[in-house]
């Protein structure tokens, strides 16, 4: 898990209304890992995921996939490269074309990106439907005949069809009933393990992220503010915002009662982020420096970085 598979470099996404959804993000996802990307609604996590797949064009910065810069690729090269980069979408009702049969939806990337012939594509689609637990006969039906959880399985089968190495899962279970969520999460977790897939798992549910992710990245107002190995992160978050997020997760196990930190105020306007540290308006620890000087994303421990002047985890002296 040390070879970078896909990297974002100073990636920036600006929309026409001058909202900077992603602000100069550097992010490396290593081969074989699942990186959990968390943050509240509107912080830019979905936009970052889509920009890494070039579904949204970044306005600056670059994305590198296995050393190849994919920002700027066009035509056939883009299409063949992107076959290895797939996505599972949030809304199972909007991510499947209601007019097409399920088998056709799944066969489409095989026909287009992999140049498979129709018979091969159909056979592969049937196989994938079996794999995600729906059965090959589901292929003759249309999306509206399925429940949310089943549709999400169809979406996963489609993402797997072209044989990807990297999958962005954008809140893949947030639209599902709680009872179904675990099944879909486990399907995704099995996939990454058995097929050696690398995944960027976007979620606002820290409980789910804890279950699937190897590392956790926290995003706030378009920036990564903390990135850490899962266990270290959940044991002791380093950024006050991460701490507040974690304190909002209900605890299942009895033990010392965690202090609940209630975030005050609204998320600041992403079109006009506050000066200094973007989080200072809501931070319980903010000092004068936080209001004027933006902290860099600094490594505080090996493999663990935080963007804060006053990290909650003590710096580990360099050996």
């Amino acid at each position: 898990m040390t070879t970078p598979l896909i990297e974002a470099e100073a990636l920036r996404v600006e929309f026409a209304n001058r909202v900077r959804a992603v602000r100069d993000v550097d992010l490396t996802v290593y081969e074989g890992e699942t990186l959990g990307l968390v943050g509240e609604s509107g912080c830019g996590k979905s936009t970052l995921g889509k920009a890494m797949l070039r579904l949204i064009e970044p306005s600056a910065g670059a994305v590198r996939y296995r050393g190849l810069t994919i920002t700027g690729l066009r035509g056939t090269t883009l299409r063949s490269t992107r076959a290895e980069l797939q996505m599972v979408f949030q809304d199972p009702f909007g991510s499947l074309n209601p007019r097409r049969k399920v088998a056709d939806i799944i066969a489409e990337p095989l026909l287009r990106a992999r140049g498979a012939d129709k018979a091969t594509a159909r056979a592969k689609a049937a196989e994938l439907l079996e794999f995600v637990g729906l059965g090959a006969e589901a292929g003759d039906r249309r999306p509206h005949e399925f429940s949310g959880g089943q549709r999400q399985r169809i979406g996963i089968a489609r993402a797997l069809a072209p044989g990807p190495r990297f999958i962005v899962a954008d809140e893949p279970v947030s639209a599902l009933d709680v009872s179904i969520q675990a099944q879909v999460i486990n399907l995704l977790a099995d996939l990454t393990r058995d097929r050696g897939l690398t995944m960027l798992f976007i979620s606002h549910d820290l409980g789910v992220v804890r279950h699937v992710a190897d590392r956790v990245a926290v995003m706030y107002l378009g920036r990564i503010i903390e990135i850490a190995p899962r266990d270290a992160f959940f044991a002791a978050p380093a950024h006050p915002y991460s701490e507040a997020l974690l304190s909002s997760v209900p605890q299942l196990h009895p033990g010392p009662v965690r202090e609940r930190i209630v975030l005050e105020g609204e998320l600041p306007d992403p079109a006009a982020p506050p000066p200094g540290c973007a989080y200072h308006t809501r931070c319980r620890l903010a000092v004068d420096k936080c209001r004027t000087v933006e902290p860099p994303l600094a490594e505080i421990q090996p493999g663990r970085s935080v963007r804060c002047h006053l990290p909650l985890v003590p710096l580990e002296p360099a050996r």
Binding site: S95, E108, R112, R158
Partner: peptide
Amino acid sequence: GRDYVLAARLGGTRAPR
């Protein structure tokens, strides 16, 4: 802008199709 259109683009389907 719908997800199923994005999915088709990701799957390598050309714009006219």
